[in-house]
Measured scan of single mutants.
Amino acid sequence: MAAGGDHGSPDSYRSPLASRYASPEMCFVFSDRYKFRTWRQLWLWLAEAEQTLGLPITDEQIQEMKSNLENIDFKMAAEEEKRLRHDVMAHVHTFGHCCPKAAGIIHLGATSCYVGDNTDLIILRNALDLLLPKLARVISRLADFAKERASLPTLGFTHFQPAQLTTVGKRCCLWIQDLCMDLQNLKRVRDDLRFRGVKGTTGTQASFLQLFEGDDHKVEQLDKMVTEKAGFKRAFIITGQTYTRKVDIEVLSVLASLGASVHKICTDIRLLANLKEMEEPFEKQQIGSSAMPYKRNPMRSERCCSLARHLMTLVMDPLQTASVQWFERTLDDSANRRICLAEAFLTADTILNTLQNISEGLVVYPKVIERRIRQELPFMATENIIMAMVKAGGSRQDCHEKIRVLSQQAASVVKQEGGDNDLIERIQVDAYFSPIHSQLDHLLDPSSFTGRASQQVQRFLEEEVYPLLKPYESVMKVKAELCL
């Protein structure tokens, strides 16, 4: 049975990233139509530049190519590739079939990587351009969430054990800070992308030097003109047959890092959902379990974690691919890159769409948070109580021993009897502590235990987050809708 299948058929496997999760716009960027249309555009740009620099290419040939950029006979191309065992030459023939007058000058002087690699770089750039505003929107939604809850005390956790208090907004800023680093890295790697350009079979530009009869300047002009037509500021000066596969490492490393950030955020949300302090959106008709109707599973956060793990592992592909590119190139890269580049971007696209949807509907339960604080705060307040007693004339050592005994009794009630923490009640009825009984409410005010959390939130948002989001103001209103 021949390899390949009808990918629109229910009898043929289709990647869930495309069929179930990723956005239509990201799927289109990695589609065959987008790819092969870009090949034709690159052939047109090459012909236009070659004509401008004096090669015998007519206006009629150029116009014929322009008129057929979208006229792609995919069936013919597939048949040609089956016959020739070469995808680029299959599309040269297919393009030439609908451009008979231009057929002889299509791909003039070029090698397969002229269309293959340059198209990949265009796709990487455009895919990054799709991700950047999506990530900015996630940051914006979380920034709104953090600002609104900047002063809401909550129990902090280290080692997932109760620690000092923080605020809900401050905790959210930990998430935002990681995503801001990801946004900066995505922008950097996007701006650092260079075009492969017009380089020939081993990167020496020998074929173009021959076409222009040894004119170095025209060869350099050709490279520059096509690079500018493709919208790049610069091209690699040095290439082998391909652009260095280190570029793929750079791009997928940034995406993998984004995956790590999203995994951490969504894990926190899942843990908070278990504590009943916070939940992701839950639709009115949504079913959490087929057997347990009360369940409210954090399905979206779980999906993000599941896909983020996949995204983090994909960076190993370009690392290994770059390491086995012998001399000017081997074909070890080809099949692998067809999979890992598309999957990385479709996965990143999915987790950003999902995280935006989550961040637009996060639900906080202040009463649950308050109750958990009441359970733990008495123990945390013991040092403040000791200091207040010393100020009232008591002995630190005597007070410490009193607190120690009462704390152990209260802990026994919590752990052995399943009761509430009654340390404060014990202190309130103990005559030894009568000098500070009137101060206990103040000493137990949760806001006095959150330090500068709310001020940190305000400063972080104003100095770091809002300036970073400013270039994306025009796209901030787009909502994230999930079908599944």
Rank of each mutant, 00 (worst) to 15 (best):
5 G>N: 15
7 H>K: 12
9 S>P: 11
9 S>R: 12
10 P>S: 12
10 P>L: 10
10 P>T: 09
10 P>A: 12
11 D>E: 13
21 Y>I: 04
21 Y>Q: 08
23 S>Y: 14
24 P>Y: 12
28 F>I: 04
29 V>P: 15
30 F>Q: 03
33 R>E: 06
34 Y>T: 02
34 Y>M: 01
35 K>G: 05
36 F>S: 00
37 R>K: 11
39 W>T: 11
39 W>C: 14
43 W>I: 01
44 L>T: 00
44 L>F: 14
45 W>V: 07
46 L>N: 12
47 A>F: 10
47 A>L: 05
49 A>G: 04
50 E>Q: 06
51 Q>T: 08
55 L>K: 10
55 L>E: 08
56 P>C: 00
59 D>N: 12
59 D>L: 05
64 E>D: 04
65 M>V: 13
66 K>N: 03
67 S>F: 00
70 E>G: 14
70 E>I: 10
70 E>R: 13
72 I>T: 06
76 M>F: 00
77 A>D: 08
77 A>N: 00
79 E>I: 10
80 E>G: 07
82 K>G: 12
82 K>P: 14
83 R>V: 08
86 H>A: 03
86 H>D: 03
89 M>P: 13
90 A>H: 04
91 H>K: 07
91 H>M: 11
92 V>C: 12
96 G>M: 11
98 C>T: 06
99 C>V: 04
100 P>M: 00
102 A>I: 01
102 A>H: 04
102 A>G: 05
102 A>S: 07
103 A>Q: 01
106 I>N: 05
107 H>M: 03
109 G>T: 03
109 G>E: 04
110 A>W: 05
111 T>E: 01
112 S>N: 01
114 Y>V: 03
114 Y>W: 05
115 V>Y: 09
115 V>K: 08
117 D>L: 03
118 N>Q: 11
118 N>H: 15
122 I>C: 05
122 I>A: 04
123 I>K: 02
125 R>Y: 00
127 A>T: 07
128 L>V: 04
128 L>F: 13
131 L>F: 06
132 L>K: 10
134 K>A: 06
134 K>D: 14
136 A>L: 07
140 S>A: 02
147 K>I: 02
153 P>Y: 01
155 L>V: 04
155 L>S: 03
157 F>D: 01
158 T>E: 03
160 F>G: 02
162 P>V: 01
162 P>L: 03
164 Q>W: 08
164 Q>S: 03
169 G>E: 02
170 K>L: 03
174 L>E: 08
176 I>Q: 07
176 I>G: 04
177 Q>A: 09
179 L>T: 09
183 L>S: 02
184 Q>A: 11
184 Q>K: 04
184 Q>P: 02
185 N>C: 12
186 L>G: 04
186 L>V: 05
186 L>M: 14
188 R>G: 10
189 V>S: 01
190 R>H: 10
190 R>P: 04
195 F>E: 09
198 V>D: 01
202 T>N: 01
204 T>S: 04
207 S>I: 08
210 Q>N: 02
219 V>F: 15
222 L>M: 13
224 K>T: 13
226 V>T: 13
226 V>P: 12
231 G>V: 07
231 G>P: 04
232 F>A: 01
236 F>A: 02
240 G>C: 13
240 G>H: 00
256 A>W: 05
257 S>E: 11
258 L>M: 11
259 G>I: 02
259 G>A: 07
260 A>W: 11
260 A>M: 13
260 A>S: 15
262 V>D: 03
262 V>T: 07
263 H>Y: 11
265 I>P: 06
265 I>W: 08
265 I>G: 10
266 C>V: 04
266 C>D: 01
274 N>A: 01
275 L>E: 12
276 K>Y: 13
279 E>N: 00
280 E>A: 13
283 E>Y: 12
285 Q>I: 13
287 I>Y: 15
289 S>P: 06
289 S>G: 03
290 S>Q: 09
291 A>W: 14
293 P>V: 06
293 P>H: 03
295 K>N: 13
296 R>M: 13
296 R>V: 10
296 R>Q: 12
297 N>V: 00
304 C>M: 08
305 C>T: 11
305 C>V: 02
305 C>H: 15
309 R>Q: 12
311 L>D: 11
311 L>V: 07
314 L>C: 01
315 V>I: 07
316 M>F: 00
317 D>E: 14
322 A>P: 02
325 Q>V: 00
327 F>E: 04
329 R>Y: 03
329 R>H: 12
330 T>P: 11
336 N>S: 06
336 N>F: 06
337 R>G: 09
343 E>W: 07
349 D>Y: 09
349 D>A: 10
349 D>I: 04
350 T>N: 07
352 L>P: 08
354 T>R: 07
354 T>N: 07
357 N>E: 02
357 N>L: 07
358 I>E: 12
359 S>A: 02
361 G>H: 14
362 L>M: 14
362 L>F: 13
364 V>M: 14
370 E>P: 15
379 F>A: 06
380 M>T: 06
382 T>S: 13
382 T>Y: 15
382 T>F: 15
384 N>C: 15
384 N>Y: 10
384 N>F: 04
385 I>S: 08
386 I>Y: 04
389 M>E: 00
390 V>I: 14
391 K>F: 00
391 K>W: 10
392 A>H: 12
393 G>K: 11
395 S>V: 02
396 R>V: 04
397 Q>N: 09
400 H>Y: 04
402 K>D: 15
403 I>E: 01
403 I>N: 13
406 L>C: 12
408 Q>T: 13
410 A>L: 02
411 A>M: 12
412 S>G: 12
413 V>I: 12
415 K>M: 02
416 Q>W: 12
417 E>F: 11
417 E>A: 08
421 N>T: 05
423 L>Y: 14
431 A>T: 06
432 Y>A: 07
433 F>R: 11
434 S>F: 12
434 S>Q: 10
438 S>L: 00
438 S>R: 03
440 L>E: 00
441 D>T: 03
442 H>G: 02
442 H>P: 10
447 S>A: 00
447 S>N: 05
448 S>G: 13
449 F>G: 05
450 T>H: 09
451 G>T: 01
455 Q>V: 11
456 Q>M: 11
457 V>D: 06
458 Q>E: 04
463 E>S: 08
463 E>K: 15
467 P>K: 01
468 L>K: 12
468 L>C: 15
468 L>D: 03
470 K>M: 10
470 K>D: 11
473 E>H: 07
